[in-house]
Deep mutational scan, measured.
Amino acid sequence: KWEEIAERLREEFNINPEEAREAVEKAGGNEEEARRIVKK
């Protein structure tokens, strides 16, 4: 599940997989929260 979210974030925000994974981890697997983290 987290991998899927990280993949979507990576494609959408054009970030590297590591950044995407970190955002999802910080968000506890919550996609909306992960998006907010990435946008900062």
Score class of each variant (00 low, 15 high):
K1G: 09
K1P: 10
K1V: 15
K1W: 10
W2K: 05
W2Y: 08
W2S: 05
W2E: 05
W2L: 07
E3G: 09
E3W: 09
E3I: 09
I5H: 01
I5D: 02
I5G: 01
A6K: 05
A6M: 15
A6Y: 07
A6V: 15
A6I: 15
E7V: 12
E7H: 12
E7F: 11
E7D: 12
L9C: 00
L9T: 00
L9H: 00
R10K: 09
R10I: 14
R10M: 12
E11G: 09
E11L: 10
E11H: 12
E11I: 15
E12M: 07
E12W: 05
E12P: 00
E12F: 08
F13Y: 10
F13P: 01
F13V: 02
F13D: 01
N14A: 05
I15K: 02
I15C: 07
I15Y: 01
I15W: 02
I15A: 04
N16E: 13
N16D: 14
P17N: 12
E18L: 11
E18S: 12
E18R: 11
E18D: 12
E18F: 10
E18M: 11
E18V: 09
E19Q: 13
A20D: 01
A20Y: 00
A20M: 01
R21H: 07
R21Y: 12
R21K: 12
E22T: 08
E22F: 11
E22Y: 12
A23E: 02
A23M: 06
V24C: 05
V24I: 11
E25S: 10
K26L: 10
K26M: 13
K26E: 11
A27D: 00
A27Y: 01
A27I: 00
G28W: 11
G28I: 07
G28P: 00
G29I: 00
G29P: 02
G29Y: 06
N30F: 06
N30D: 11
N30E: 06
E31K: 04
E31Y: 15
E31D: 03
E31M: 09
E31N: 02
E32L: 07
E32A: 10
E32F: 07
E33R: 05
E33T: 08
E33I: 10
E33M: 09
A34H: 01
A34I: 00
A34N: 00
R35L: 05
R35Y: 06
R35S: 04
R35A: 06
R35E: 04
R36V: 09
R36W: 08
I37S: 07
V38Y: 04
V38M: 04
V38D: 02
K39P: 03
K39L: 15
K39S: 14
K39I: 15
K39F: 12
K40E: 15
K40V: 14
K40I: 13
K40F: 15
